[in-house]
Simulated assay, not measured.
Amino acid sequence: MVINKLEIWYRDFLSTRGIMELIFKIALLPIYVLIILYNTLRRELYSAGVIGRKIVLKKAVISVGNINLGGAGKTPLIIYIARRLVIMGKKPSIVIGGEALADEALIYKAQLPDIKVFTEKNKKTAIERANDSSCDIIIIDDGFQLLNVKKTLDIVIIRDDVSPTPIPLGWGREHISALKYANCIFISKPSHNYALKSIHGISKPIFIMRQVPEVIVNAGTGKIVNISEIVGRKVLLFSMVPSIGYISYELSHRGIRPFLVQFPDHYRYRDVDIKLVLKTGRSADYIITTEKDMLSIKNSLKKSHKEIWTLKSKIDIKNESEFWKMLMKKLNV
């Protein structure tokens, strides 16, 4: 909870424009420069083989990572890629490591029940387990900063609704120049053109990815309602995902303007939280949340909430066929 509160404060701080905030940001400039120098030097030394030794695995390795803090769309992209690989007769597995593995593992296991998901606090341990399994492709969730593993395809997904300026002056994990080490770039949440402007001059294949709302499903009854049927209705949208603003943006393009209630990322819902949401949305025709939130709610609470609907979206990729041609070439298929 302390980390979540700090995250909210930091997001608010980055959006302020007061004199004191400006002075503070200027004071942080040396740290900003040091972080960029450290990340750049680390990548260059790894690339030159001066430090570290790249582990060559028995399986093909697809990494999906980002350079932004917060949600960029890795999970839906990984689900999309894994499903397509299964249709093609492949046996992918997914590797997750770090603090967020519980939330992500729930989503993968719910949406990809036939795909093995390897979860460990230490990502290297999870990769070793996947390498010894019967899968033929390892998909690493959040693997761009993992420099000691040889990858067949290194995908970086960046948010277009957040400035990519690195911390502590922005919400980026690395400088935008790090994208030159990727094989291809996905731009998610296309709404502000921050990303397109920032990556001008970086010669990598670029794919625009949208998550298009399709239907809502009632949590209690399973009833399905097409998004077009709730246009003009009162809608409350609550979520812990950082991209709630983008979800609202996509809904608004469909003629739906929801009232937003945002919880901290990786939040653990309690009964009191859901009661508050239901009270806030008592005049709404629909109370909607994401699939990630719904899994967390079902995992945390005993009661089935028939008043809540789950939003389901589809992945739409511009030049989708070009991406799969590139991937198949990398996999020697």
Results as ranks from 00 to 15, higher is better:
Gln111Met: 13
Lys109Met: 12
Val117Arg: 03
Asp132Leu: 05
Asn148Thr: 02
Met88Asn: 09
Leu153Tyr: 15
Ser163Ile: 10
Arg159Pro: 04
Cys135Lys: 02
Phe144Asp: 08
Ile155Val: 14
Ala100Arg: 13
Asp103Leu: 11
Lys91Leu: 06
Gly143Thr: 05
Glu128Trp: 00
Leu106Lys: 10
Lys150Tyr: 11
Lys116Glu: 12
Lys151Ser: 12
Leu85Pro: 01
Ile155His: 14
Glu99Asp: 13
Ala130Val: 05
Pro113Ser: 10
Leu101Arg: 15
Ile87Trp: 05
Val156Asp: 12
Ile94His: 01
Pro168Gly: 08
Lys124Pro: 01
Lys91Val: 03
Lys116Ser: 13
Ala110His: 13
Phe118Cys: 04
Leu153His: 11
Ser163Tyr: 10
Tyr108Met: 05
Ala126Arg: 02
Leu112His: 02
Asn131Tyr: 03
Ile107Ala: 03
Asp161Trp: 01
Asp103Trp: 00
Arg129Tyr: 05
Ile155Ser: 08
Ser93Val: 13
Ile138Arg: 03
Ala105Asn: 01
Ile137Ser: 01
Pro166Gln: 03
Ala102Lys: 08
Ile127Phe: 12
Val95His: 07
Ile138Phe: 07
Val149Glu: 05
Leu106Phe: 07
Gly170Ile: 09
Lys121Asp: 14
Leu146Lys: 04
Tyr108Leu: 04
Lys151Glu: 08
Pro168Asp: 07
Leu153Gln: 10
Val149Pro: 02
Asn122Ser: 12
Pro113Thr: 14
Ser134Pro: 03
Met88Ser: 12
Lys123Glu: 09
Ser134Leu: 01
Phe118His: 11
Leu101Met: 15
Leu112Arg: 08
Asp161His: 06
Asn131Gly: 07
Glu120Asp: 15
Lys124Trp: 09
Leu146Glu: 07
Ala110Glu: 12
Lys123Arg: 15
Arg159Ser: 15
Leu153Cys: 14
Val86Tyr: 05
Leu147Val: 01
Leu85Thr: 06
Lys151Gly: 09
Cys135Ile: 01
Asp136Pro: 07
Val162Ile: 15
Leu169Ala: 07
Tyr108Asn: 10
Lys151His: 10
Ile157Thr: 11
Glu99Lys: 15
Gln145Pro: 00
Lys109His: 10
Asp114Met: 09
Glu128Ile: 08
Ala110Ile: 06
Glu128Lys: 11
Ser163Ala: 12
Gly97Asp: 09
Lys121Ala: 09
Ile155Asn: 10
Ala105Cys: 04
Ile87Asn: 07
Ala102Thr: 04
Leu169Lys: 14
Ile155Asp: 12
Asp103Tyr: 04
Leu112Ser: 03
Ala102Phe: 12
Ile96Phe: 09
